[in-house]
Computed example of a mutant assay.
Amino acid sequence: MPRLLDVSDDVRAEIGDEEADRLLAGGNVPGSYDCTSCRTAGDSEQERTSTVLFVGDETAVLAFAHAACLPSQVVRVAEDQLQGAVRSVADAPGTPDQVPGAAPSQAVLGVTSGLVLIAGELHPALVVEPTGPIARPGADSGDDFLPLLIEQGYMPVTSLEEAPRGLEGWSVLLAMGQLHAVLQPGTGGAPSQVAWWQAHQPLLVTEGWRAAANKTQKVLIFAAPAGSIGRQPREDLLRDALDKAAANGRLVAAALPLAGT
């Protein structure tokens, strides 16, 4: 039986016309499914359903989502992340991950989720801080973490009195109820986004964080050089650290649209 299925051009290009047409005709598509984004039940015979193709180095996994949660798209992720997503293994926020294009010894990030109060409204935020200096690719030393981000469109923050502006082409991927990646535009004419930061294993976020993200449909990204923020056990302490980093000219930020719920 035909399904109410959306198959994007990017997904069709990956899986081929024959398989795409088979899906649209109802083949290999369950009538009911668990949405890969909000993790609640969906019915492809009754409501619009998106095909979401997670592509790793050697593995591709086709998942289904409510069209209201995620558009049909290709999400390119590291092979270990994809395996973690398949197993739905959760880890605590703050897991170190690598920055593409930088040397491994210089490219370990800590990412922490939290709610930040700006102009009387709670905003879901991710705070990104390396464990050491991030040198520009090809350089032997130095810390170019903030200049590299500013070149990508992130803006310096001197105070947290207003939310940062949006950054076109970037997004935050929340799928299977967990945080998977921060995506940036593909390079070299690539049609889909690629991961700028990706969790080695999907990261849990609080219900409050998810509720705020669903309300605003965006996530604030704050980034600071190593040693600027630190591991803060409470959100009020995290906010104090962000205020201090901003006052010292050591903070950049952007507002990214939410992909998923």
Rank of each mutant, 00 (worst) to 15 (best):
193 Q>K: 11
82 L>W: 07
13 A>Q: 08
130 P>Y: 06
239 R>V: 10
36 T>P: 00
239 R>S: 08
85 A>P: 00
154 Y>V: 02
160 L>H: 04
175 A>H: 11
122 L>Q: 12
73 Q>I: 02
46 Q>T: 04
119 A>K: 14
114 G>F: 01
67 A>M: 06
150 I>E: 08
201 Q>T: 13
201 Q>M: 12
100 P>E: 08
12 R>T: 13
79 E>R: 11
223 A>N: 04
5 L>D: 01
196 W>E: 03
161 E>M: 11
64 F>C: 03
61 V>D: 05
78 A>E: 14
166 G>K: 13
138 G>F: 05
169 G>M: 11
234 R>F: 14
146 L>C: 08
211 A>L: 12
157 V>M: 14
64 F>S: 01
128 V>L: 14
81 Q>G: 04
40 T>S: 10
101 G>Q: 12
167 L>F: 09
187 T>W: 04
216 T>W: 07
252 V>D: 02
140 D>F: 15
140 D>E: 15
234 R>H: 09
239 R>K: 09
252 V>M: 05
71 P>N: 13
236 D>Q: 10
177 G>Q: 09
59 T>E: 13
170 W>V: 03
243 D>S: 05
55 V>P: 00
255 A>H: 03
210 R>F: 05
28 N>H: 14
124 P>N: 08
180 H>N: 09
232 Q>Y: 06
137 P>N: 10
225 P>R: 13
2 P>N: 10
250 R>D: 02
50 S>D: 03
206 T>W: 01
189 G>E: 03
90 A>Y: 11
113 S>H: 10
159 S>W: 02
124 P>G: 07
5 L>Y: 04
55 V>W: 10
83 Q>P: 00
121 E>F: 10
231 R>L: 15
6 D>C: 11
81 Q>A: 15
230 G>A: 12
146 L>Q: 06
160 L>F: 09
148 L>V: 05
91 D>K: 09
201 Q>Y: 12
139 A>G: 01
144 D>G: 03
198 Q>E: 14
253 A>F: 12
84 G>K: 09
39 R>V: 15
20 A>T: 15
193 Q>V: 02
71 P>G: 06
83 Q>M: 15
94 G>R: 05
111 V>T: 05
75 V>A: 10
205 V>M: 08
142 G>M: 06
50 S>R: 05
172 V>M: 11
1 M>W: 09
122 L>R: 06
56 G>M: 06
230 G>M: 13
14 E>W: 12
8 S>D: 08
38 C>N: 08
118 I>S: 08
72 S>R: 01
197 W>I: 11
84 G>E: 00
105 S>A: 14
182 V>F: 13
242 L>M: 01
173 L>H: 08
52 V>N: 00
46 Q>I: 04
200 H>F: 10
197 W>A: 06
173 L>C: 14
153 G>T: 07
2 P>C: 14
108 V>S: 10
218 K>M: 15
142 G>A: 05
136 R>D: 01
166 G>N: 13
231 R>N: 05
182 V>S: 08
